[in-house]
C-alpha cells in the first residue's frame, strides 16, 4: 500500500536547519492498522503529514500503490487527497457549518455528486457513526467524542482507501477514547481500510494496531508486529515506553528490591495458551514451584497475551528443565539472571 523510502524533512528555525525526520523507511501493508508512536518532538506528526503531502519531504519517495506521490501533479495530488481521509486531534470541524454540512463538504469538493446523492451519502455516514439525530446541530453543541465521530464520517465520505489519524484520541477522555478506537477498528475491518495513526499512548497501539513503528529523534528506533515490539522491546526508548505504560519496574530492579536470590524467568504467552494452566502443569510435571512476582494478562488488539516474571524454586537442572518445557509449548522464556 505505502512504501516510505528514505524520507527526510527539516525545518528552519531562526536560520538553523532542525531535522524533523531523517531517513525514514517503512512499508505499510494494505488493510492493516499501522501505529507510529513517539514522544512529542519525535517527528511523528511530520511523518504522518508527509503521507498526504501536507508536509513535503526534502528527500525520499512515498509510493502509494506503486506511484510516487511526491511526483504528483497538482491535479493528481488533489485527487489523491480526496480519497485519503484524515482525522485530527482537535477535530478541525467547520464551526459555521452543521454536522451534516461538515460531512457534505468533502463530497461537494469533488463536484461529482448531485444534491440528492450527497444527502443520501451524508445520512449513510452519520448512521455509521451513530450521529443521525445530530445532523442539523453545530459542532459547538457536540461533545469531544461526537466531534471526532463527525471527523471520522467526514474523512470517510469519499470512500478512502487510506485513513490518517493524527493523535485522534489525545483530546478525549479514556471512555471516549475506547469508543473511538472501537469505531476505527470496526471501519478497518468492515471496509478493509488501511489506517495509519500516530499517538504517544501505548494503550492506543495495544488496542488497535497490527504493526507499530517507534520513532525517536526523527528516526525509526524499531518497528514490527505490535505483539513483538511490545512484549520484546529491543530499543531503550521502546523499553521505557512499554514499562511506563504497564507501570512495571525493570525486573532487575525488582530482584534487587525484593532481595531475591533464586532464578528469575520472564515468561511470555501469546494466543489462546494464555488462558491455560501452563505454569501449574509444568510445576506438577517437574516437581518445581513458581512464585509469580509480577505480571500482566491482557489483549493486544484481538490477541490474548500474558507476561509473567516468576521465580523458580529449584535446582539449576530444574530451571533448565523448566526452560525446555516452555520451549516445548513454544512459549517464550527469558532468564533474567540470578
Amino acid at each position: 500500500m505505502i512504501d516510505i523510502e528514505g524520507v527526510s524533512k527539516h525545518y528552519v528555525v531562526d536560520g538553523n536547519p532542525i531535522p524533523a525526520i531523517s531517513d525514514i523507511n517503512l512499508r505499510i501493508e494494505p488493510g492493516e492498522v499501522f501505529g507510529i508512536i513517539g514522544a512529542s518532538g519525535a517527528g511523528k506528526s511530520t511523518l504522518i503529514r508527509t503521507l498526504n503531502l501536507l508536509e513535503r519531504p526534502d528527500a525520499g519517495r512515498i509510493l502509494v500503490d506503486g506511484s510516487d506521490i511526491t511526483a504528483f501533479s497538482k491535479e493528481e495530488l488533489l485527487a489523491y487527497r480526496r480519497t485519503t481521509g484524515m482525522i485530527f486531534q482537535h477535530f478541525n470541524l467547520l464551526g459555521a457549518k452543521t454536522v451534516g454540512d461538515n460531512v457534505r463538504f468533502p463530497l461537494k469538493l469533488t463536484g461529482k455528486y448531485t444534491e440528492a446523492e450527497m444527502d443520501a451519502r451524508v445520512d449513510e455516514l452519520l448512521d455509521l457513526v451513530e450521529l443521525k439525530d445530530h445532523r442539523d446541530k453545530y459542532p459547538a453543541q457536540l461533545s469531544g467524542g461526537q466531534k471526532q465521530r463527525v471527523g471520522i464520517a467526514r474523512a470517510l465520505a469519499n470512500h478512502p482507501k487510506l485513513l490518517l489519524c493524527d493523535e485522534a484520541t489525545s483530546a478525549l477522555d479514556p471512555q471516549t477514547t475506547q469508543a473511538i478506537l472501537r469505531l476505527l477498528r470496526d471501519i478497518n475491518q468492515r471496509f478493509g481500510l488501511t489506517i495509519v495513526l500516530i499517538t504517544h499512548e501505548m494503550d492506543v497501539i495495544r488496542a488497535v494496531c497490527d504493526r507499530v513503528a517507534v520513532l525517536d529523534k526523527g528516526r525509526v528506533a524499531e518497528h514490527g508486529l505490535v505483539t513483538d515490539v511490545l512484549l520484546h522491546p529491543k530499543h531503550p526508548v521502546t523499553r521505557a515506553m512499554v514499562r511506563e505504560s504497564s507501570h512495571h519496574e525493570e525486573s532487575a530492579d525488582l530482584a534487587s528490591t525484593l532481595g531475591l536470590s533464586g532464578l528469575l524467568l520472564r515468561v511470555t504467552f501469546l494466543g489462546e495458551i494464555t488462558y491455560q494452566p501452563v505454569l501449574e502443569r509444568i510445576a506438577v510435571k517437574l516437581g518445581v514451584s513458581f512464585s509469580i512476582l509480577e505480571g500482566v494478562i491482557g489483549r493486544i488488539k484481538d490477541t490474548p497475551y500474558g507476561q509473567l516474571t516468576v521465580q523458580v524454586m529449584g535446582s539449576a537442572e530444574d530451571v533448565e528443565r523448566v526452560e525446555a518445557a516452555f520451549a516445548e509449548q513454544s512459549i517464550h522464556c527469558e532468564v533474567l539472571g540470578s
Binding site: L54, R81, R82, T84, F88, H90, N92, L93
Partner: peptide, 18 residues
C-alpha cells in the same frame, strides 16, 4: 481562523478557491 480548519480542507483535497 483556526489553521487546523485550513489544514483539514487541504487534506480533503480542496483547491485554494474552495
Amino acid at each position: 481562523v483556526d489553521r487546523g480548519i485550513i489544514e483539514a480542507s487541504q487534506a480533503m483535497g480542496a483547491t485554494l478557491r474552495q
